[in-house]
Design a protein around this nucleic acid. Structure first.
Lengths: 198, 198
DNA sequence: TTCGCAAACGAACGACTGTTAGTCTAGCAG
DNA sequence: CTGCTAGACTAACAGTCGTTCGTTTGCGAA
């Protein structure tokens, strides 16, 4: 067994596919394109993948699992902190995830505009994360009550506001640099947090 | 000249294309699909369009112009109102635009993930609206100063917060009904507005 | 050395892509 | 009635799509 760490062909296919799907979308990426990026011929791809659909779904599963883990880790790791810390940590951690060049873009793409024939499969995979966020947020809201943070805020309002915040942050209508993004979070978080406690 | 108001073939192509591009994307929509939706054969499309790209760009131009007009109208029509009214009106008007089933989805799609070969052309068309929003927001911020509304808020923060709000609202991670959407706006707006004046 | 196997290959598949050319027909203008 | 034209048609184009087949190559194990 050779212990060099040069990337295997399978890994290079995986990485190139993620990049291409992220920038060109599923239908906008052809296997010829992918093969060229990897540096092999198109039919050779099939020594490593089952089908284009299978490749795509594998990537969706992997990225979604990474997203879920990041989410879960963030919620668990500040379990004893005040709610303000926990919510801000969640925003920051998810932001960091979304800022990963290919993973973040790919994630947003299949969340918002999955390839139509794969819509059902994709939604089934993303459902777990959605549910996890919901649970975490309800927990945060309850903790906020114990801390007597909210004055008029309902749980529904808290959930809506949080989703608007993160979806808004993650929507890069322009191409942000990381610095610009951090500035945006720093700008908007205090406004958001003050609003919740109105 | 007949004065019946049955839709012309050109209009039916236009409408069907908008629907298909919105749900399947540019690369995900074929001319066969479009022709079938219209009820004619694929080559007959070319009596009314120049090319698939041309059809797409025409739709982009039209929808973007509609977006710009809605934007402009909203800003102008409340020119003498207090800034809170004006900002809320802008959010509501843009929301109403984005809620139009096909136009809204199509708009978000080409804004976030335009077909790669047309990226430059699309960006050139959307630039006008971006600039218009920026001007309006700076104007609103200045008006807020006159009204002594802001306490610590900078212009940069105001812009960032506004963009996060509307982008967040327009990101339908789930498929909202119109009622649900209105509820979301009603939930989040007071939080957002209170935060701005903190 | 030989065997087996993973992996890359060229050739080709049928289906479909966007697009063009040429033909036919229905309806309006003269 | 005649002629023009807009618009739909069939047929076919060259090219690309995702995918399969059978073969070859190179390397590690026996």
């Amino acid at each position: 067994m050779s212990d060099n760490n040069a990337p295997t062909t399978a890994q290079r296919i995986h990485d190139s596919a993620l990049t291409l799907f992220a920038s060109y979308g599923y239908e906008g990426t052809s296997l010829s394109q992918l093969a060229e990026a990897v540096g092999i011929r198109k039919p050779s791809l099939y020594n490593h993948i089952d089908s284009k659909e299978g490749l795509f779904m594998d990537l969706v599963e992997e990225v979604e699992r990474a997203f879920f883990d990041e989410l879960d880790r963030s919620v668990e790791s500040h379990a004893d902190a005040p709610v303000e810390t926990r919510v801000l940590a969640l925003v920051s951690d998810l932001s960091r995830f979304m800022l990963q060049a290919d993973k973040g873009t790919f994630h947003k793409r299949y969340l918002l505009f999955p390839p139509r024939p794969l819509l059902a499969e994709v939604r089934q995979i993303t459902a777990r994360s959605e549910a996890r966020i919901d649970v975490a947020l309800r927990c945060f809201y309850a903790q906020g009550i114990e801390e007597q943070l909210w004055h008029t805020l309902t749980e529904r309002e808290f959930l809506d506001a949080f989703y608007v915040l993160v979806d808004g942050l993650f929507t890069e209508r322009f191409l942000y640099s990381v610095d610009e993004y951090d500035r945006r979070v720093a700008s908007v978080w205090p406004i958001f947090w003050a609003g919740l406690q109105r």
